[in-house]
């Protein structure tokens, strides 16, 4: 069985905390950082549940600030 795992990196400096990636994520991987803000005062996005990520890129496609890059690996179980 092929298993897919993904991960995203968020350029927290550019992120404006618009939450659109969180909404777009089908696996509940992402959330906004509640306790931290970036230099410009935004609650930036982060992988709250990294184990859920499949690397589908949905978050990156809708990110207006080009903060997200996506990685994906396929492994045979």
């Amino acid at each position: 069985m092929i298993k897919v795992r993904g991960a995203v990196t968020v350029n927290t400096d550019r992120c404006k905390g618009c939450n659109l990636c969180v909404v777009a994520c089908p696996t509940g991987t992402l959330a906004l950082q509640r306790s931290e803000v970036n230099d410009r005062g935004y609650h930036f996005a982060y992988m709250a549940n990294p184990e859920n990520c499949t690397g589908c890129c949905s978050c990156a496609w809708v990110c207006p600030d080009a903060c997200i890059e996506v990685y994906r690996v396929k492994t045979e179980a």
Binding site: G6, A7, G55, A60, W61, E69, V70, Y71, R72
Partner: peptide
């Protein structure tokens, strides 16, 4: 996972 060769976006 987060390696250049795995980057898809």
């Amino acid at each position: 996972i987060i390696r250049e060769e795995n980057k898809v976006y």
